[in-house]
Amino acid sequence: MTGPTTLSRPAAAASGQGGPAVPARAYDIGLLLLRLVLGLTMAAHGAQKLFGWFGGGGVEGTGMFFASLGYPSPEAFAVVAGLTETLGGLGLALGLFTPLAAAAVAGTMVNAIAVKWGGGFFAPEGVEYELLLTLAAVALALTGPGRIAVDRLLPWLRTHRLAYGVAAVALGAAVAGVTLLLRH
């Protein structure tokens, strides 16, 4: 028999039942899985740009690609993109400063979407992959990392607030917009 003390947080909220809820283990494990896959994928993309790992071009090769796209100081932008993807990705994987890590990933992916925009929706020329990564990052910024995260150990981040996620996504969008304005 299921009562208010055995419902997960989402189920208790949906049923309108108050009272203490047990840890939402499935919810937390789902968020952990999403964070790990998205975060490590983005960190690997950043390592391609910074170090040439995993078949990437390194700073020089990525800089040449960025130059062809019209970015000023293309090697500097390659370093910024690589660091943003690497650090944002690792932050997501660890659940550390999750709203900011998610915003970093989302902002970087907004630039990727803008670059590929004319290629349609479906891969390999389209934006479906980049859009999926962007929206997964935004979802994590808004939901928080779950309970299996380093953020749970930090008193000021222990309780996720929707406002943190919204503010972080707005910041990521603003930085992405400025970056796109610098591109000719």
Rank of each mutant, 00 (worst) to 15 (best):
G61P: 12
L40T: 13
A106C: 10
A67V: 06
L100I: 12
L50I: 05
G107P: 09
G52N: 04
E75V: 09
A81H: 03
W53K: 00
G95M: 06
L38E: 08
M64S: 14
G39W: 06
G55L: 00
S68W: 08
L33E: 14
F65Q: 10
V80T: 12
L92M: 10
H45D: 03
G107L: 02
G107V: 06
A43T: 09
A103D: 08
W53F: 11
L96M: 05
F54P: 06
L36H: 11
G89M: 04
A76I: 15
T86N: 08
E75F: 08
L83T: 06
Y71T: 10
L83Y: 01
A106K: 01
Y27H: 15
F51P: 10
Y71E: 12
G57A: 01
G95S: 11
A67L: 03
A43C: 11
A103T: 12
T108I: 03
M42A: 05
F51N: 09
G82V: 04
A47K: 06
G91E: 01
G88A: 07
P72E: 05
V110A: 13
L87P: 02
L38T: 09
F54S: 03
Y71G: 08
L40H: 10
A101F: 10
I29P: 13
F66G: 03
L96S: 01
A67M: 08
L38S: 10
L50W: 03
L31S: 07
A104D: 04
L36W: 11
G95I: 03
Y27A: 15
V110C: 13
G61D: 10
Q48W: 02
A101W: 05
L94E: 03
L34Q: 11
H45F: 04
A102F: 13
R35G: 12
F77S: 02
S73G: 14
S68N: 14
F65P: 00
A103W: 08
E85M: 07
V80S: 08
K49W: 01
V79Q: 10
T86E: 11
F65M: 14
M42L: 13
E60T: 07
D28A: 14
L33G: 15
D28R: 07
L92E: 06
A93P: 04
T86L: 14
G63I: 00
L87H: 04
A67T: 08
F51K: 10
N111W: 06
T62A: 06
F54Q: 04
G61E: 11
T41A: 15
M109Y: 00
F97C: 13
G39A: 08
G46Q: 05
L31P: 08
A103N: 13
A47R: 04
S73T: 14
G55W: 02
